[in-house]
């Protein structure tokens, strides 16, 4: 299957000559959910910022559909949507206006927007809250707004940073069902998470980061093989790796 996102020899950080992530190589292909896992401070968010084009690589690059952000900023950014770890909303916009704004930013036709938005709102049980403002939402509801905005666009690639925190079980279920449905219709997903049991069930491949480096990657079977832990769960492999037993 064709790769959507290709990260090649990516090194980057916040200060010159002090990289936080080192020589990352990975890809997300069509119809694939890739789990990005690692301890706090492992470099997951920095990696995601590079993929988003919010940070510039020191060396290497990140390509979406064969193009880097520098080649074609507009096209690069229109290929994905992003769900941040912390929901960031505009205090002065209602739920509905956030959805409208997203649709406009990605250049969706109004008709497409209207046909997509209703079922989404119902699925996440937010259809009676479209006139609400962010200060009336709980943390989980804010997270739902971010998710709705991202799903609405139906891009080729989803970049998701820790989506489950604060979400109710039904919300988590709906989100995962959507992810699977979009995956089956060809989209790719890069998802950073700490909820390993869920990741194990839904992700096709895993990238395990430690201290800014990718130290283990592959399908669950491949991870087991490489770590030498037969029949281990993702949890067990991850703990094994995080305690520094793989070099």
């Amino acid at each position: 299957m064709r790769p959507i996102l290709e990260v090649k020899d990516l090194t980057g950080g916040y200060m010159p000559n002090q990289p936080v992530i080192h020589n990352l190589n990975f890809s997300v292909k069509e119809s694939e959910i890739v789990g990005l896992i690692g301890l706090n401070g492992a470099g997951k968010s920095t990696t995601i910022k590079h993929v988003l084009g919010l940070m510039e690589p020191m060396s290497g690059n990140s390509k979406i559909m064969g193009q880097t952000f520098r080649d074609e900023p507009e096209i690069y950014r229109s290929q994905f949507t992003y769900i941040p770890e912390m929901p960031v909303l505009y205090d002065e916009l209602t739920l509905w206006e956030h959805l409208e704004l997203t649709a406009m930013a990605y250049g969706l036709e109004e008709q497409t927007f209207l046909t997509r938005v209703r079922p989404l709102l119902e699925e996440f049980r937010m259809d009676n809250k479209i006139k609400w403002f962010p200060n009336q939402f709980s943390k989980g509801m804010k997270q739902k707004v971010m998710i709705l905005c991202a799903l609405l666009v139906e891009p080729r690639l989803y970049i998701v940073d820790e989506p489950f925190v604060g979400l109710d079980p039904l919300g988590i279920q709906s989100f995962l069902e959507y992810m699977v449905a979009f995956k089956n219709s060809g989209a790719g997903v890069l998802m950073s998470t700490h909820i390993l049991s869920t990741a194990e069930k839904y992700c096709d491949r895993f990238l395990i980061m430690h201290e800014g480096r990718l130290i283990l990657s592959g399908t669950l079977g491949e991870l087991r093989e490489r770590s030498g832990l037969k029949d281990a769960t993702l949890d067990e492999i991850y703990l094994y790796v995080a305690r520094g037993k793989v070099s």
């Binding site: 900023p73 507009e74 950014r77 229109s78 992003y82 941040p84 505009y90 704004l101 930013a105 990605y106």
Partner: peptide, 9 residues
């Protein structure tokens, strides 16, 4: 940082 990223140019 989320909503205006796609309209960078």
């Amino acid at each position: 940082l989320v909503f205006l990223l796609p309209v960078e140019s």
